[in-house]
Amino acid sequence: MTLVKHELGQGKTSFFIWTFSIGFLLAICVFLFPEMKEQMEDVNDVFASMGSFTQAFGMDRLNFGTLVGFYAVECGNILGLGGAFFACLCGAGILSKEERDKTAEFLLTHPVSRKRIVTEKLAALLLQITAMNMVIYALAVGSIAAVGEEIPWKEINLLHLAYYLLQLQLAGICFGISAFLPKGSAGIGLGIAAMMYFLNLIANIADVAGFLKYITPFGYCEGADIVSTGRLDGGMLAVGAVMGIGGIVAAYLKYTKKDIL
């Protein structure tokens, strides 16, 4: 538990900045909704007829004039991208920062097994992501209630659950990759988050690239699908779970044997 506590302390600033940035932006968007709703009847047609751009963000299937439709798109972009960046940065950094900052020499010469170090760091990572999602969920629900809209519980819950799982999957993948890098960098984390996001946009635009939805976790976070079907895609979730858990297993296998230079 010593390390978990230590990690949470080390990641405190970053956690608060990311959580409140995402939460704040999400709340702002919700607060803009009542004003936009009145204009939406005209705008909806415009948004729905922008060709590929419309498709990319799923706006051909969502009604921007309803809170659910509006929230699914906005949420996708703010919580999806912001949460993915945070999860990837944390996941890629939590192990490799010890080597980058040369603190590994300090940590690993204490009588703590490498397995235990990986486990406690993983626990700290999951705790941070979980805490962030709970705060953001509360802010989202609170702001919807504050603008006087009825809360679409089922859709909101499913959307937030999907993005939570997305963050866990990406964090797991980055965690695994970072164990293999001699000197990990934030660039890898950001790169993976951005790549996954754009893979989904491509999959939305081009039908031939539809298989990409199985590679990127943004596939099962598609607001339009979640709102229209009322569930998450089990197949995509399963592939995602395999990737995320695979990353974590790889981290254990590699880090317990790694030469710390």
């Binding site: 010593t2 390390l3 230590h6 040369k102 603190t103 020499e105 300090f106 010469t109 204490h110």
Partner: peptide, 30 residues
């Protein structure tokens, strides 16, 4: 490692910690 104390040539520590926090962390890890 329980019986060993190591002084590295380059002393690098975590950012944002006070000396006493570091000493406590090292003791807690042991």
């Amino acid at each position: 490692l329980r019986h060993v104390g190591y002084l590295p040539s380059e002393a690098v520590f975590y950012r944002g910690m006070k000396v006493k926090d570091l000493l406590k962390l090292s003791a807690d890890l042991r």
